[in-house]
Design a protein around this nucleic acid. Structure first.
Lengths: 250, 250
DNA sequence: TCTGGCGTTCTAGGATACAAGTTTTCCGCA
DNA sequence: TGCGGAAAACTTGTATCCTAGAACGCCAGA
C-alpha cells in the first residue's frame, strides 16, 4: 500500500486552492501556511489528501520554495506527514493524540484560568461581548460563527492571564482538536449550546475568584472533545476505506 | 542603531562552526538545526550574535537552503529572531519569557507527575539509574554531565506518563530555561546538588502515589530557574553593552 | 494468472540564480 | 569638520535547476 496516494478520489486540491489569492507584497510562505492550516482544520482538505509541493505551487502560481516552508511548519505541528522523496499528506486523526491534546489543554488552560481567578483583573466587558456572540451563534445555529467566537474566547482568557507563549502552545494542539470538533458538529446538534454553558460556568468561577472551580470547569470543557471523537468514530465507521480517523489498532 | 550587527566583537561564528561535520547521507537541515540549537542553549553562540545564512552555509560547506530551514525552526522556538531583508540574531533572554516558561512547565510537568503518581507503573530501575548518574555528576562537579542527565530524567518521566507531545512542548520552553541555567551555573555552585535533591523528592512522592505532593515538588523544582535568572542578572549587570539578558524595561 | 525484475516517472532535498529591500559607505559640498 | 544623498554592498525572500531515492508499471517468465 502506498504511503501517499497520487490522487484522492472525489477530491481536487487544485480546485480548492484555485481561489487562493497571494499578496506578492507580503512574504508568501506564511500566507500559504495560513491557508493550508485553515483548510486542514476545517476539513476542506481531508485526512490522507496528498499535498504535493508542485501541485500547491502551480495552483497558487508560485514556486515550490514558500510551499516547502509552509509544509515544514505544518509537519512540526503534526497536521501534515511528509515521507522523504515520496510525498506529503494531511495527517489522520488518532484518538491517542486527541487524548494527549486534552491532557495538555487541561494543564495549560487550567493554569490560565487559575491565574485569572487568582490575580488578574479581567476585562469583563470584552469577555461578555464574546459570550454574547457565542449565544447569538448558538441561537442562529451558525456553527462556524461559534467556532470563531470560541477561538477568540479562549485566546482572550490566555491573553488576559498574560500567557501568550502558553496560548501558542495550546493553539498547536487545539488545531487537532478543532478538526474533530468541526467534523463532529453535524452529529452533535446540541454540542455548541453545551460548550456555551461551559464557558459561562468557567467565567462565573473566575469572576468569583474560585481558582479550583474554574480549573475544574475548564477540564470538563476541554474533555468534551473526547465524546465528539467517539461520536465521530461511530458515525464514520466503515464509511470509507480512507478513514478520516486512524484505526484504534494500527 | 542597527537591528543586526555585522559582527559581534570577540566572537567568530565561522570558528565555532568550522568543526561541524555534516553527514551528506542524512538530511542536512535537521543536522544544522541540532547544531545551532545546542550552540545557542549552551551559550557557545551568545545572545545578539548574528546568524547570517550565508556565513553558516559557507562555514558548513553547504547551501543556504538547509540553513534557512534550520533557522526558521529556531525562530518558531523563539531562540532566533529574524528581521526580513536584514538578518537573524540569537534571541536575548528576558525575564517575562522565563517566567512564562516556568508557568508552562509547572502546568505540563506537574500534570505529568500527577499522571505518573496516579496510574502508571513506572520503570523504577531506569529512574534510579538516571538519579545515580546525577548523584555522580554532582559529586564530581561535572556540570555538563548533570545537565545531560537532568534532561534525560525529565524526558523519562514524560515518556513513562505516556505524554510524548507534552514533552515536545516542554522542550521548546525548556531551551530558554536551560540557557539561563547553564549560564548561571558557575555563579550557583550548589544549585545542582539542590536540583538533585528536588528530583529525589519528586520521585519519592510519585513512588508513594501522592499526586498532589509530586506536583508541588515539581513546581518548586521548575521555579528554581527564576532564582538563577536573578543571580545571573546581578552577575552580568553592566558587564557588557551587548547584554545577554534583555533589560527589564525595554 | 501470478510473480519478479528492471526501467520510467514522480517526489522531496539541496544547490544555484535572481529579485527586493536594508544598511553601510563614501563622496560632493557647505 | 559636519552633513546630505546617491550608490555600492549587504541581507533575506523567491524562483529555477539538479539530484538521490521511492513507487509505479510494464513485461518476461513460470
Amino acid at each position: 500500500m502506498p504511503r501517499v496516494k497520487r490522487k484522492l478520489p472525489g477530491f481536487d486540491l487544485g480546485q480548492v486552492l484555485s481561489e487562493v489569492a497571494v499578496d506578492r507584497a507580503q512574504a508568501i510562505g506564511p500566507q500559504i501556511y495560513d491557508v493550508l492550516r485553515r483548510l486542514i482544520v476545517q476539513s476542506q482538505v481531508p485526512s490522507g489528501a496528498p499535498l504535493h509541493e508542485n501541485d500547491i505551487a502551480t495552483a497558487c502560481r508560485i514556486s515550490r520554495t514558500p510551499v516547502r516552508a509552509a509544509l515544514r511548519q505544518l509537519v512540526l505541528e503534526g497536521l501534515v506527514t511528509t515521507w522523504p522523496q515520496v510525498g506529503s499528506v494531511v495527517a489522520s486523526i488518532d484518538r491517542a493524540q486527541i487524548a494527549e491534546g486534552v491532557v495538555i489543554r487541561r494543564a495549560l488552560e487550567g493554569e490560565i484560568v487559575r491565574l485569572l481567578a487568582q490575580q488578574a483583573q479581567p476585562d469583563w466587558q470584552r469577555i461578555e461581548a464574546l459570550l454574547a456572540v457565542q449565544s447569538d451563534a448558538v441561537a442562529r445555529g451558525d456553527d462556524y460563527a461559534f467556532f470563531v467566537a470560541d477561538e477568540q474566547f479562549h485566546a482572550c482568557l490566555a491573553e488576559m492571564a498574560g500567557a501568550p507563549a502558553a496560548w501558542r502552545l495550546v493553539q498547536s494542539v487545539k488545531a487537532h482538536i478543532d478538526r474533530v470538533r468541526l467534523l463532529a458538529t453535524r452529529h452533535q446538534p446540541g454540542r455548541h449550546r453545551e460548550a456555551y454553558l461551559e464557558h459561562l460556568a468557567i467565567v462565573e468561577a473566575v469572576r468569583r475568584g474560585r481558582a479550583e472551580e474554574a480549573t475544574r470547569e475548564m477540564s470538563r470543557h476541554v474533555e468534551g472533545v473526547l465524546k465528539s471523537f467517539d461520536v465521530l468514530a461511530v458515525a464514520t465507521a466503515g464509511a470509507s476505506a480512507d478513514a478520516v480517523l486512524k484505526p484504534a489498532v494500527a
